[in-house]
Design a protein around this nucleic acid. Structure first.
Length: 730
DNA sequence: GTAGGGTTAG
């Protein structure tokens, strides 16, 4: 207690000093004094008359007016009256003045405090009003000081004192001391007090204490259950939350909306679809009518559990949607990789006149990033500026990432430079972006700058750094960063880092060293590590290592089409047609399919998708005309189709046709006819670019004098004047 | 009492 009372104490006289104005008589009528506030509302004037034309007021009228009072101006006039007629010295009436000033929205805490100091013998009721006032107006320190002073003046708390005090607790220490007081004064078995006590422990993050209070409660009400469930949900212990809910069901406690919202929050965190569906049933069984928050929480669980269409059904039936609803639904689509749907929903949101916030923007930018939709991304950036949405670290990072992954590294850099605050993620996004565009050296410069700025790189930053080394062919730097990761930053290399190292060594032709590293790794290699090695074997034509690696890869995942294709391509590129055919036959025998290649191109804000030999585009006939013209002009410039990567057993002419119909060629042809000369063409591909398309695109960039930026599964190819930024390594 | 966002290569 002594420690608790050691706060610095402001002077808060609970004195019996002479009030400012003393009653001069005990008459029951008087006139409105000249001390009235100058600002009078029309309503007050009607009730009380104005300053120059006072009317007489009786005490009982005063009390009635006090009940109906709406503004401070009215209150001050009534207060003045009460001072004249002596009513102020009535305990109940004075308490009313304090409680109005302290608790009403239109009130004034300063005034309440001033009045309080003039009350000769304040009661605990008045003190509680003050404490509640301080708490409600978010002045927790003042609430606690007031309480402290109150008890030193022998005014003792009642059961209404503690709930506000618990709400004003700033630390667990304060909370524990108040808990002691509460027990000492004998209120620790009051249900309301116990609920707020639980809430206090929960908001201090002390769930064990909250649970102790909960377990000790003899008379739990629905608020107790809801609070306990909410506490666990909030502090990311959803399983515990659901266990409490289960007990609540066993004890046949009828849930209310709030308790169900908390249960759903726990379901969302635990990804527990089953309980969520049960709650959905309960909502219907209990006949809880339409309840926006409850429906929103339910939508969120469905989204998080991958049932986006169920969420959408609820969403469509909501008569009034707030920003929560829109953001949850948009995020749901993004998480479900339905990026177009997310963007479409945003259009709908705009048509309804609902403004998005920064969370909405992050989700939408993420969609653009995945789709490679630079124009839409740019538009969103403008929209963010137009709508005055503050670009904070997360939104800025999303912008940097979007620009970088849409192949516009200059804009990514510009956003990065303009950001006021950057954290590890921001730097990492830029480093990875630079690495993907083949600007490995610049990426490493930024990595250096990041370290200079005092930020500590994390494991993900190092993935970017090593990728940069790999793309730039910087073997020694790669090894040195790999070592510093452990030695300087104490980050244990994970399989991702080993994968990058295998890639660095493999690209440099150090296949044996790469194989050695895989042997020494503390973990078993996964398909990505071995896939990287197999890719390196392809580049360097190392057949033996390729066969070894492919064998291990097929042991790990015999369903993976890419492995068969890569091995078959390696055979055919070395002229080993028999072996190549054997692999392809094996694929047919095992009924293994390669995922279909698909290319996206954005024209005037619309994303068009092409698959091999696609005829679904409305401009197909023009596209194929262009394609013929293109191939013809390329051949004229020296292009020779490379048919070694054709999977099917076709004759030579068919092979040539098969590769000329690759989705990226179609997308580029569409880009050429749909944009004005000189405009860069940007294509996003879901797989790696094939060797022939890579060669062809180099020729296109020269023949048609266009920059072509192709984002494939792993990186960017920036084609210009017949060259590619990947330096033919990918 | 409902969301709360951004960085991982191959």
């Amino acid at each position: 207690m002594a420690a608790f009372l050691s706060f610095h104490c402001h002077s808060l006289p609970l004195s019996s000093e002479t009030p400012l104005v003393k009653s001069s008589s005990s008459t029951t009528t008087t006139t409105v004094s000249a001390a009235l506030s100058a600002t009078e509302s029309a309503a007050t004037t009607a009730k009380l008359g104005n300053i120059n034309n006072p009317i007489e007021i009786e005490t009982y009228t005063c009390l009635t007016l006090l009940e109906e009072c709406n503004t401070m101006s009215e209150l001050k006039q009534i207060h003045a009256q009460m001072l004249r007629n002596g009513l102020f010295f009535d305990e109940f009436a004075a308490a009313k003045i304090v409680s109005f000033s302290a608790l009403e929205d239109s009130g004034s805490l300063d005034y309440a405090l001033l009045v309080f100091t003039r009350i000769p013998n304040p009661t605990i009721f008045t003190c509680n009003s003050m404490i509640r006032g301080f708490t409600n107006k978010n002045l927790p320190k003042k609430a606690l000081h007031f309480y402290e002073h109150m008890i030193t003046h022998d005014l003792f708390p009642d059961r209404f004192t503690f709930p506000s005090l618990f709400k004003s607790c700033g630390s667990l220490d304060e909370g524990r001391m108040l808990h002691c007081h509460c027990t000492k004064f004998g209120f620790s078995c009051d249900c309301y007090v116990q609920n707020t006590l639980m809430k206090m422990y929960a908001s201090c993050g002390c769930l064990i204490s909250a649970r102790k209070v909960f377990d000790k409660m003899e008379n739990k009400n629905i608020v107790s259950w809801a609070t306990m469930i909410g506490a666990y949900a909030e502090w990311d212990q959803p399983i515990e939350a659901l266990k409490v809910f289960e007990r609540m069901e066993i004890e046949n406690v009828r849930p209310n909306e709030i308790s169900l919202v908390n249960v759903l929050t726990a379901c969302a965190r635990a990804r527990d679809l089953e309980v969520a569906k049960r709650v959905h049933g309960i909502i219907e069984d209990l006949g809880i009518g339409y309840h926006l928050v409850l429906m929103t929480a339910l939508m969120d669980v469905y989204c998080k559990c991958g049932c986006v269409s169920l969420a959408r059904e609820i969403f469509d039936e909501l008569p009034d949607k707030n920003l929560y609803c829109w953001n949850i639904m948009i995020k749901g689509y993004v998480e479900d990789s339905e990026y177009e749907a997310a963007l479409l929903l945003f259009r709908e949101m705009q048509l309804k006149g609902v403004k998005g916030d920064k969370v909405t923007m992050v989700s939408l930018l993420l969609s653009c990033t995945h789709l490679g939709a630079l124009e839409l991304g740019k538009w969103l950036h403008m929209h963010i500026e137009k709508m005055d949405i503050a670009v904070d670290v997360a939104l800025g990072t999303a912008l940097v990432d979007m620009y970088a992954k849409c192949g516009c590294i200059e804009s990514a850099l510009r956003v990065f430079q303009e950001m006021r605050e950057r954290d590890v993620m921001t730097w990492t996004a830029l480093i990875v972006g630079l690495a993907m565009t083949g600007q490995g050296e610049t990426a490493l410069d930024f990595f250096h700058e990041m370290q200079m700025s005092g930020l500590k790189p994390d494991a993900i930053t190092f993935v970017g750094v090593l990728a940069a080394c790999s793309h730039a062919g910087l073997v020694d730097e790669g090894i040195s960063h790999f070592n510093s990761m452990r030695n300087v930053y104490g980050i244990k290399p994970s399989i991702e880092h080993f994968g990058c190292m295998v890639d660095i060594l493999g690209r440099a032709g150090e296949i044996a060293k790469a194989e050695e590293l895989i042997k020494e790794m503390p973990m078993a290699p996964d398909i990505f590590v071995l896939g990287g090695l197999l890719g390196a074997c392809r580049i360097h034509g190392d057949l033996e290592a390729a066969e070894r690696t492919a064998k291990r890869l097929l042991e790990l995942d015999s369903e993976r089409g890419g492995t068969y294709v890569l091995l078959s391509n390696i055979y055919s590129s070395l002229g080993k047609w028999e072996e190549a055919k054997a692999i392809r036959d094996l694929m047919v025998k095992r009924k293994i399919k390669k995922p279909p290649g698909c290319s996206l191109i954005e024209i005037e804000g619309i994303v068009y998708e092409f698959t091999r030999g696609d005829l679904t585009n409305p401009h197909s006939s023009k596209i194929y005309e262009m394609l013929d013209d293109m191939i013809c002009r390329l051949k004229h410039a020296g292009y020779v189709p490379d048919k070694s990567e054709v999977l099917f057993d076709l004759d030579e002419e068919e092979k040539e046709n098969a590769i000329s119909l690759h989705s990226e060629k179609l997308a580029i042809a569409f880009g050429l006819i749909s944009t004005s000369p000189g405009t860069p063409i940007r294509v996003v591909k879901n797989l790696r670019v094939c060797g022939d398309c890579h060669t062809a695109t180099k020729f296109i960039s020269k023949v048609y004098n266009r920059e072509i930026i192709v984002r494939d599964r792993n990186r960017f190819h920036h084609f210009k004047d017949g060259y590619c930024s990947c330096k033919d390594f990918w």
